[in-house]
Amino acid sequence: MQMQIQSRFLDGAVLALIKENDLYGYALTQEVKSIFAISDSTVYPVLKRLRKEKLVVTYDEPFQGRNRRYYQITASGSAELQVIEQEWWTFSAKLNKLMGERK
């Protein structure tokens, strides 16, 4: 199935994944790719925007002689995620109702 989804729900997916676990760029990209058919270069701008809006913060952790940058959700990030979840539930409930009726 291929369909277009608002970038708002991509933000929501990224926030939800980071909320579960702090993640680094590559791992997060793989997680997002398991849900959406996005290219690898789609995640960076999302993270940058979320960081600028202070919805996520970063910290570096040493790994094999270099640093890995982990992304962590903030309190306002959790609040924003709740708003996006609410929007998603409203949207999908309407669609479920409509699709259910047609059957």
């Binding site: 199935m1 277009q4 989804i5 790719k33 398991s34 849900i35 959406f36 058919a37 789609t42």
Partner: peptide, 11 residues
């Protein structure tokens, strides 16, 4: 640019 390209993946 921003709003396109995100597609739900086939299960």
């Amino acid at each position: 640019y921003f709003k396109t390209k995100v597609t739900a993946k086939e299960e």
